[in-house]
Design a binder for these strands. Structure first.
Lengths: 363, 363
DNA sequence: GTTGGCACTCTCGTCTTCCGAGTGCTAATA
DNA sequence: TATTAGCACTCGGAAGACGAGAGTGCCAAC
């Protein structure tokens, strides 16, 4: 099982070079680049063994070597030098984060866009909300035919809706409804809002016009919307910059898959706790469409028991080191801004934790 | 200048066929398909003349003919049979519209997505808002450190923001601020909110904690956000389905241009009044990136003096007839739902109005 | 004005050839 | 025993050759 130091160096050199150039790497190139003092012939012997061990493969006899998923896995687990972001980069990210997070609620959207811009790969962001409840109701009387529903949720977001009526209501009724809903519709989950409950509220308020149902419908809508995981995808088109996606059909397939939204959820579910970065290489992905792409996922604390995920998709020949560093920093920044208490301090980089795999012999 | 009836028929046949197959059209095919009783030799003569006149061109000697932008223009202006949507199609669109418009405020997003789904081309939607003002302020006291700002705008949308304070406020202060802001910050535009005004409000409210500035900042944010034109793009990846975008570089260029957002604004500005559909063919587009694509734009009434635009982008070999019909219907549906009073009735199809061009001899 | 016929042109797919990068193996060397 | 130099071999990809087919332009006949 042991793999010699020199083999590791050589493997690392192959992966580095291949990530850089996207072309199979030959023994000669390695002899020169990697500073180990031996000739190309020696390297060739080592390469042949690395192929046998399953870390490399050759597209055909007499081409250079290309990493297998297993080779990438080894690279990510042990060989790759964890990249530190430069000061400019961290500042740049922070600046952008500050700019983006000004805005209201479309953060998911902004996060994915930002991740895509930073990495130059398609990115997707999603949050998995835990059960949300309504914390308080307010009904603002505008005029006899109009009122505004304002609902504050347990995750501290606020939703509103303008309601226009074909008939008139008086302010008293509004007040009555407001206190009734505050009494019986708060701190309950979506599925606890039953027709029965609505009916009894309607009777209690002496509401002959069905306002209760309107309000209840809004409550249901808001709750289901907020507790459904939301996803946003950005930068699909960046795929086209990658040589492995020069085939339009291949690109199209993956892009429509991505545009479809949060399909990476299967990966997300198995995702462990706090700030870590996970790398899924080629066949390690569950989704068929991703079997020959790689995904890097970071998780952040979005406040109120909510975790968010940022994922970046690219060819297996992805620049893991740079992407992981950037996502990690981005996630930490988001946790710090959105999260509860104990977020890591500003400049910290997260530990890379890798999905267990190794030697499972996928081909 | 006159162009014989037969020539028109032939031209129409060429365009139809080319739109269908994306392959140069030969004389023989036309002789068979278009039901004019003459032989391929005759057609050949006519075709040669149509090339001379600039309506057609051949990729090389001994290939079939392909329409020039001028040919498409003629087709769109005079030849194309205005497609009527089938009953199923109109019902489908209406159903989707109803489903989509349930949702809150992200309509632009939904509109573009819908347009893209319907046409199978990338689509983009945008609104050009006229000056928006705040109609009323409400401040909801939650607890000593928290309140909710609710703002209703002249375009009937409602925005809110949760504000948390490091210090305590009492309910009286909130009330005072609420009535002050309702008095002096309503019905004014963004640029009328001056530091002077904020200062005087602050003094009047005896607000030593700077709450006025927080509220005013929110007002400014909401106003600028609502009056800025917003744009949404969807379905960029559908480009890859088109044979003319099999070249990944070409596809990439256009897709990044589109993802960039509302760049079609230049076209939008010159866009006339109400419900019409406009077609911009190839070089008629101002944007360099669109010079060999076509754009179909429809406009709808989004209520409160706001107009929205829906644009669809595709190759010049776009199915103008179908796209125009769908967009037109979609726009009418939106106008009906969002617009002020006098929207056209349900089943109505809009008149196609075409940007003047003709014989300007672009090549 | 229309038509059939025919020679001509040009693209596209297939096949062949050739070049070079890179390998694997062997024999010599430290 | 590990390394190295040398060399024959392999294979993909670029470049050229070639034939088939689609479509044209033109001419002479109707």
């Amino acid at each position: 099982m042991g793999i010699s130091e020199r083999k590791k160096k050589i493997l690392a050199a192959v992966v580095d070079e291949y990530i850089r150039t996207a072309e199979p790497v030959g023994s000669k190139a390695i002899a020169q680049s990697a500073g180990l003092g031996c000739s190309s012939a020696t390297i060739r012997n080592e390469l042949a063994e690395l192929v046998n061990m399953g870390y490399l493969e050759q597209p055909h006899t007499s081409a250079g070597r290309v990493p297998t998923p297993m080779g990438y896995r080894m690279y990510v687990n042990e060989l790759m030098e964890k990249q530190k972001l430069s000061l400019e980069e961290t500042e740049d990210i922070n600046r952008r984060l500050n700019a983006k997070l000004q805005e209201l609620d479309d953060t998911i959207d902004n996060v994915s866009r930002l991740a895509s811009q930073l990495t130059d790969y398609p990115a997707l962001a999603l949050t998995t909300q835990s059960a949300v409840t309504i914390r308080r109701f307010d009904i603002i009387y505008v005029d006899a035919n109009t009122f505004i529903l304002v609902v504050m949720l347990s995750n501290n977001s606020v939703r509103n809706k303008l309601v226009r009526l074909p008939i008139s209501v008086d302010q008293k009724m509004i007040q009555r409804l407001s206190s009734l809903f505050n009494a019986s519709f708060t701190n309950i989950t979506e599925d606890q809002i039953t027709p029965l409950l609505i009916n009894s509220t309607e009777r209690a308020a002496d509401d002959s016009m069905g306002l209760s149902s309107v309000i209840a419908a809004f409550a249901i809508e808001v709750l289901s919307e907020s507790s459904a995981p939301t996803a946003a995808v950005s930068g699909e088109n960046r795929l086209l910059g990658q040589p492995e996606f020069r085939d339009p059909d291949k690109a199209h397939r993956l892009m429509s898959y991505l545009s479809g939204g949060g399909h990476i959820l299967p990966a997300a579910e198995s995702f462990g706790g706090s700030d870590e970065v996970r790398v899924l290489i080629g066949p390690e992905n569950v989704a068929e469409e991703l079997k020959d792409s790689s995904v890097v996922i970071a998780s952040y604390d979005a406040g109120d028991n909510t975790r968010g995920l940022i994922g970046v998709v690219g060819p297996t020949r992805m620049d893991y080191s740079a992407v992981a560093a950037k996502l990690s920093f981005l996630a930490a920044g988001l946790s710090r801004r959105l999260g509860g208490g104990d977020a890591p301090p500003a400049g910290m980089h997260n530990k890379l934790i890798i999905k267990g795999d190794d030697s499972s012999g996928n081909r």
